[in-house]
């Protein structure tokens, strides 16, 4: 299995960051309603930020390049 190499083409960092943040916000809301953590937990703030960074990384690195033939 080869390691994922950074793509040399143009990525989608803005799209990844924006929708990473949105995904983090909605996921946080879902986890709150499933009583995974409380409303005053730091995860309410941390999880959207984490997903923003994950989205940014996905948009830059484009690890799903195997779909591009």
């Amino acid at each position: 299995m080869t390691a994922i190499q950074p793509s040399r083409g143009r990525g989608r960092p803005v799209l990844g960051a924006v929708f990473g943040l949105l995904f983090g916000l909605f996921l946080t809301f879902d986890l709150l309603m499933m009583s995974v953590f409380a409303l005053d937990s730091v995860m309410v703030i941390a999880l959207p930020i984490i997903m923003l960074l994950v989205g940014l990384a996905l948009g830059i690195l484009q690890p799903l390049k195997f779909l591009k033939r």
Partner: peptide
């Protein structure tokens, strides 16, 4: 909306073109 944003996030991981 979680599923929709996850799908767009996955799309962002696909190279342009």
């Amino acid at each position: 909306l979680t599923l929709v944003t996850a799908a767009v996030l996955g799309f962002a991981a696909i190279p342009r073109g």
